[in-house]
Amino acid sequence: MADLDPISAVHQAVEDRLKVFFPKWHMEPVPAVLTLQEFTTLMGRTPWIGIAWTGFTPDAKSGRQLHGSHVLRLTMALKNPGRGGRFTGDQHAPGLYPAFATLIGALQGHTLPGHGTIAITKADQSFADGYGDKSVALGIVEISVGPQAFSAPFGALADAPAFVALVATYETSDGATVTDTISMGSP
């Protein structure tokens, strides 16, 4: 049922876009905050980009159907044996600054069909506390993708196994409790 999951779909769309510009870089989903052990494991596959979904920011006027933007954090890590080369790049390996410029240029303002438009919300250098390799350079780029409705279409949900109905119970302004049942196959 991965095709029903809007988070996985946005993640995959961002990764597909990045692979065009970073074809030799390792990419994978990562937690928003990496442990030192996770980070050390990933450093064996540099250069890499970790993609973390950090949340969903709803629009103020969403109503009953949630609309808003997905927020993702992209962590870039690379190694370069030259102390200056880790930032500017050289004949040995890519540098952090050119990688930042490429990633920002590839994503800012790009529309992912069905998901919304990408906006860079922050780009910054970073570090891994406790990791002492001086050839490593790290960067964080935070993006927003939207606006998008955070739900699957009812037609797709109707095809999901064992999905019979959507039931919502809520209180009205006068204190009455209302239950709304939407059976699949009916509007």
Rank of each mutant, 00 (worst) to 15 (best):
153 P>Y: 07
62 S>T: 09
39 F>D: 03
89 G>F: 05
70 H>V: 00
67 H>S: 06
57 T>C: 01
87 F>H: 13
137 A>M: 09
143 I>P: 05
143 I>E: 07
56 F>E: 02
47 P>V: 04
24 K>C: 00
31 P>M: 01
55 G>V: 09
133 D>V: 05
63 G>I: 04
150 F>R: 13
74 L>S: 04
83 R>L: 12
39 F>C: 00
112 L>M: 08
154 F>K: 11
36 L>G: 02
156 A>G: 04
107 L>E: 04
84 G>E: 13
19 K>Q: 14
38 E>T: 05
70 H>C: 00
146 G>A: 04
83 R>F: 08
69 S>Q: 10
121 T>H: 12
59 D>E: 11
64 R>D: 05
72 L>V: 02
85 G>T: 08
130 G>A: 09
127 F>S: 15
30 V>T: 15
158 A>E: 14
33 V>Q: 12
99 A>N: 12
38 E>Q: 14
88 T>I: 12
47 P>D: 05
125 Q>T: 13
75 T>M: 12
106 A>R: 09
17 R>F: 03
129 D>W: 10
66 L>T: 07
119 A>V: 10
154 F>Y: 14
159 D>S: 09
49 I>S: 01
119 A>E: 15
111 T>H: 09
71 V>Y: 00
141 V>M: 06
66 L>I: 02
105 G>Q: 13
73 R>D: 13
33 V>G: 01
107 L>N: 09
36 L>F: 02
100 F>Y: 13
59 D>L: 04
47 P>M: 05
74 L>G: 07
33 V>C: 00
105 G>P: 10
60 A>L: 06
91 Q>D: 13
72 L>N: 06
90 D>F: 06
142 E>C: 03
